[in-house]
Design a binder for these strands. Structure first.
Lengths: 158, 158
DNA sequence: TCCTAATATTTAGTATACTAATTATTATAT
DNA sequence: ATATAATAATTAGTATACTAAATATTAGGA
């Protein structure tokens, strides 16, 4: 018999795996993985968005976003234009192909999950989201409660 | 303002990221990543366990387990011995070093998370686990309810 | 001015993690 | 008995995803 915290870990692993599988399914069906689609959506909503902004928005490191953008740029879905006023910054824009892909792309999470989620009562949805947010907060090393002392690394990182 | 299903995805991403960061922290501190530690624990509990059994237990593909075992074997934490009665099967065993590592290893999830989780009321823990299990089930393509027709790929896969 | 710190992105290197295909073995059915 | 199917593990190839270090630029202070 597993302990509760072990059951929790197992459930999380299943969720993580399901998200990964959805990503590969997307890749086969529309040629975009989950993270690529999320980046495409972000750029679609905010043309010229910075790499760092994308990274913060979807909770990835800048290095990862750079990596994914490399692939997307090679496939002509987005283009990077370095800012002229602050040459450190790089703006990301959709190409025609990118706009086309975005307009026909499905949701990052499986449709059947999203449908079921939307079919739930409002309070139930809220409760589910709240539980996940609570877990995320409990796991967040930056917000260990009753701990006024933060390491330098923590402050820099986030 | 984000929609509820988008909030849910963001929260999941944060959790996934926190688990990954814990894994890298473990790697620096004790030289074992999260998945490596989980495999070590499984082998510790069940000497000679098959690769497939490990994969099913912690929700990974066999290929991934093989990959991780390669690294662990190279570092002399485990050894693989092919079964003599069924030569397709490979049993995994702890080495002395592996036993040593396991005996001093910390938990796969951050201690401060586990502590906080254990400090919660019993019913609250159960509710949290149940919510995660429900999400996992909702995401599981194998268990789309009201759908008696399963694709061949699904049956074979799991 | 000029040095240092901060910011933004990229590169290098490593570890997951998957699917599809391959190899080897064992089980089954004709 | 032998061809076929199923099972087990591995290999090949690709995509995340991270940290640390490198590069370039901008901002601030002495």
């Amino acid at each position: 018999m597993l302990k509760k915290d072990e059951e929790l870990l197992v459930a999380l692993r299943k969720i993580i795996r399901a998200i990964g599988m959805r990503s590969r399914q997307l890749s086969k069906e529309v040629g975009l993985t989950g993270p690529q689609l999320m980046i495409l959506q972000k750029v679609g909503k905010q043309a010229g968005v910075m790499v760092r902004e994308i990274a913060e928005d979807i909770n990835l490191s800048s290095a990862t976003v750079t990596n994914i953008l490399d692939r997307m740029e090679a496939r002509n879905l987005v283009e990077r234009i370095r800012s002229t006023e602050d040459k450190r910054k790089v703006g990301v824009f959709l190409t025609k192909d990118g706009e086309q892909s975005l307009s026909t792309a499905p949701l990052p999470l499986q449709e059947h999950f999203t449908n079921r989620f939307k079919a739930m009562e409002e309070w139930e949805q809220s409760q589910m989201v709240a539980t996940l947010q609570r877990i995320a907060l409990m796991m967040d090393a930056q917000h260990v409660d009753a701990s006024p002392i933060l390491e330098v690394g923590n402050i820099i990182e986030k």
